[in-house]
Amino acid sequence: MNIENYTLKVKGKTLLKETDLAFSTGVISHIVGKNGVGKSQFAKDLLLNTSKQMLPDVQENVCLISSASNIPHDVSKDFLLRFLRDTFNEQMISRMEQLLNLSNIDGKILIKHLSDGQKQKLKLLSFLLEDKAIIVLDEITNSLDKKTIMEIHQFLNEYIEEHPEKIIINITHELSDLKAIAGDYYLLHEQRIVPFASAEQLIDVYIHEA
């Protein structure tokens, strides 16, 4: 996926300016950046195309998994899975259940009563069923316990291995994501998305940013 000279303005503020974007299939592209630099706005723009610079084949093939995309909290896991089975491929659902280790989640209680990690796993399962070519993950490991973060890392590593045709963009604050999931590394800095050769180099620049 290549977009040249990409500029993103939100409410008059320029968040990204004339930057070139290139994300490869089969790897997870991590984008790191400080608060307020426009990471989440970029994620939303991939879906909404408010910048009018996304090609239709990008906009139509984006799946956004973030705090802006939730599953209903007023149903139970069992109901949700039954409901999803009516729409999506049974085999795909079973495989995701297995990869995300969902069997230990109580199926009877409402999702709103589950832990944040359990909700996040159900959200990943639901939205990935859409089977879109470009998957945008925005802070999906934020505020989760270490065990769940490790499970999600493992899941993403297995998922990209099984789906090498996908482009996965992981927008994150969690530097542990960069070490646990191999991929391409980008820093959103001074209105540009800058590629780095390694996670270490990116982390070094990131933690010394003004």
């Binding site: 956004l64 705090s67 802006a68 995309s69 939730n70 599953i71 209903p72 909290h73 409901f83 999803l84 729409t87 639901s126 939205f127 069923l129 859409e130």
Partner: peptide, 12 residues
């Protein structure tokens, strides 16, 4: 407020 609209899109 619960940010469920993308889920509705997901289910068609």
């Amino acid at each position: 407020s619960n940010k469920n609209i993308l889920f509705y899109k997901l289910i068609g």
